[in-house]
Amino acid sequence: MKQEQGLSVKEGQVQMKVEHTKQIKEVVNAVKAKNIQNVYFVACGGSMASLSLGEYFISKESLVPSFVYTSNEFIHRDPKVLGENSLVILRSHSGTTPETVSAASFAREKGALTVAISMDTESPLCQEAEYTVHYNYKDGSDALDGEVGIFYTLIFELLNVFAPDEKYSRVVNQLPNLEKLINKNVDLFSKVADDFGKKYKREKIIYTMASGAYIHHAYSFTSCLLMEMLWIHSNAIHSGEFFHGPFEITDFDVPFLVIKGEGASRPLDERALDFVKKYSNKVEVIDIADLVFEGIDDDLKEYFGPALAGAVTRLYADGLAEHTGHPLSVRRYMWKMEY
């Protein structure tokens, strides 16, 4: 939906909120009308990483099985339980990712309920899916908090269908705090992230470690920011898997960025962090417990931490871009040739 001429930014945001609420309500009503027995989150790259948070919360909080697939494998693997009792949520920023568009078509052929998340309602993905929940980057009326807030609203409204609990309504009610919290945490971590970029600007490889909901941020940071945008070798290591092979590469000059999560898997991060700090002199930590959570109930911090972490980790890539002189927009292959 494009912002109408003559509307102020604030009026446009109100209009967008009404539209988003309507779109999410339509999806929730469609889910209620069906006997949904499983949920699939399907996308590629950073879009897949963002959807993975939905899989994490639904599998953790409800009895409904949920799965994450990269789009092409979703088609080629052809899950046997995919069918008329399935909900398939797909995402592509532009709505033009060919594999994801094909995955939407494939899911609909199987009889699944399909929902597209994108910035462009006229995109091939949104046209292919049965329902659309969109955010609006094109005219600037949705910032990062808008995109995250819209997705979180959808997920926690769905959780209230799958496993009703008053805390999910509280999450949705406190999401309007997100913009302020993102801005405060960006201010809090900007200097630290810039120092990180200055310190590690000549590193050829940087490992990122996390667990729980934050492993998806680690994946996005390594694959989409370090490797894709900065051409720095990297790998996202799950803290729980660190001692099952990867820890052998630890040495005094091997850099690690550890996301110390807020939630059930925090002990996994603490154990891995204790080890790397003993044997590497290049360890940096993003401790989610240090983030600002003003206006968020204590028992909801586990849900809001991942919503804030993306903006914070992005700062570390910005720091590297600034001090390496390598803009995040530069590509060698992507969008430039056939692949």
Rank of each mutant, 00 (worst) to 15 (best):
N35I: 02
I259D: 01
M334Q: 13
K34H: 12
R266V: 09
S141K: 12
K198F: 09
K22M: 08
E302G: 09
D253I: 12
E130V: 01
A116C: 07
A129V: 01
L320E: 07
P306C: 03
S118D: 05
K301Q: 12
T70K: 13
Y214N: 15
V148K: 01
S190E: 13
S123F: 08
I206A: 11
N136S: 10
V285F: 05
E322Y: 02
P98D: 06
I182H: 06
A163N: 09
N72H: 11
I205D: 03
V283A: 05
T96M: 10
E109S: 15
S86T: 03
D290E: 15
S211P: 00
M334K: 15
D78H: 11
V88I: 07
S47G: 10
D145A: 15
H217D: 13
V68R: 11
D318S: 11
Q3K: 15
E4T: 08
A103V: 06
E322C: 01
E55Y: 07
K184W: 04
K10Q: 13
Y279G: 01
L268N: 10
Y316A: 07
K80S: 13
Y135H: 09
G325W: 00
V283P: 05
D142Y: 05
L257S: 01
G295K: 05
D165K: 08
K34V: 08
S211M: 02
P176C: 04
T132E: 07
E84V: 12
N85Y: 11
I155Q: 08
E338S: 10
K198Q: 10
P255D: 08
R91K: 12
K278F: 06
S86G: 10
A317K: 04
L7C: 03
A218H: 03
L175W: 02
D274H: 10
Y279D: 03
Q37W: 00
M16D: 14
C224W: 02
M209N: 01
R331S: 09
A43W: 09
G310Q: 10
R91Y: 06
N173V: 01
H93L: 08
